[in-house]
Write a protein that binds this DNA or RNA. Structure first.
Length: 306
DNA sequence: AAGATTAGCAACCGCAGAGCC
DNA sequence: CGGCTCTGCGGTTGCTAATCT
């Protein structure tokens, strides 16, 4: 059909994102919400293609993302679902791990779990879902609240063409006591910057400090495990034929979902779920795990973006 | 200490589906 | 209804850091 490229390649910047670009992007999304990515580069002046902006947001800047240090529980979920779904359903797998992106899961699978499984198979062991995992593993050390705050406090910016206010510009320009300086001495190097989520957290956290207080949280700000439904009912995918779980199509805040990790919540759904037919064994296991570990807050809550 | 190799991960590419006109 | 645009997704690449020789 002669589909045009998503952006003209001329003048489009590629490669690692800089802190400045991140702030511009976050500020813009704070004001307009995610979506309409086509207009992002135009409106913000970012020399990035829309795809790149979307990817950066969904894989890195989006609120509530947990990175690195997969817990044994998460590993178990991934391995289990991967064996059920195969390599081509990373988004579906990610929907069971709300704080993880499909890209992250895919990377983790390719770099860690594949080898791990191979090793285990070589030793004649088969994978079994972990009986329990440690709630306080290193993977939980990421400062979710700070990360959440740093984005959720960004209201009120975006006046002017470039979505970076004067204060931020000064911080960036000055680097004297900028969040960048605090966050990462090497922040000038975009590559090392991009490799540290903590840097972003800190620098944006510092950036947000001067922001007006956040608006009161919307209802449904915190979901418990019962409120969360994966995008794909496992039974229907695995072909066991017992797909009693019916998933409503209602999406309360589609714009906030970023499309990748989508959950469907509503009161009706919750009620339905309470009267739902028995869960599939996998889903039972997933929810039981969460309950056992008291991880519902950790693994199955999705903070709202704004 | 220096070069080579490997591992990890951010980002890009291209295809496909959904929705709009 | 068909074409076009936008967005989502999975596979892959390329860069950097860590480790090994």
């Amino acid at each position: 059909m002669g589909r045009p490229p998503c952006c003209d390649k001329l003048g489009v910047k590629k490669g690692p994102w800089t802190p400045e670009e991140d702030i511009i992007l976050v500020s813009y999304i704070q004001e307009h919400g995610p979506g309409n990515w086509r207009s992002v580069p135009v409106s913000t002046g970012l020399m990035r293609c829309s795809k790149s902006c979307r990817l950066r947001w969904t894989n890195y800047l989006r609120t509530g993302i947990k990175r690195g240090n997969f817990t044994s529980h998460e590993e178990g979920v991934i391995v289990h679902l991967q064996s059920l779904l195969g390599n081509s359903r990373w988004a579906a797998i990610a929907s069971y791990l709300p704080r993880r992106t499909d890209n992250d899961i895919k990377n983790y699978w390719n770099t860690h779990l594949k080898k791990k499984l191979r090793k285990q198979q070589a030793m004649g062991a088969t994978f079994a879902p972990p009986a329990s995992s440690s709630p306080g593993t290193a993977g939980d050390n990421f400062d979710h609240h700070n990360h959440h705050d740093m984005v959720s406090r960004a209201d009120g910016y975006g006046a002017g063409q470039a979505y970076m206010n004067k204060e931020v510009s000064q911080l960036i320009a000055g680097r004297g006591h900028s969040p960048f300086a605090d966050a990462a001495p090497e922040a000038c190097s975009s590559s090392s910057y991009a490799s540290s989520v903590d840097n972003i957290s800190k620098l944006l956290g510092g950036f947000m400090k001067s922001s007006p207080p956040p608006p009161p949280p919307p209802p449904h700000n915190n979901y418990d495990a019962d409120d969360v439904k994966p995008l794909l009912p496992l039974d229907s995918m695995s072909g066991t034929g017992s797909a009693e779980l019916s998933f409503t199509a209602s999406v309360q805040q589609p714009a906030l979902m970023g499309g990748r990790v989508g959950y469907e919540y509503d009161d009706e759904t919750k009620q339905k779920q309470q009267h739902q037919a028995p869960l599939s064994s996998i889903e039972k296991w997933l929810f039981d795990e969460a309950a056992d570990l008291e991880l519902s807050d950790e693994c199955y809550s999705v903070p709202m973006l704004f």
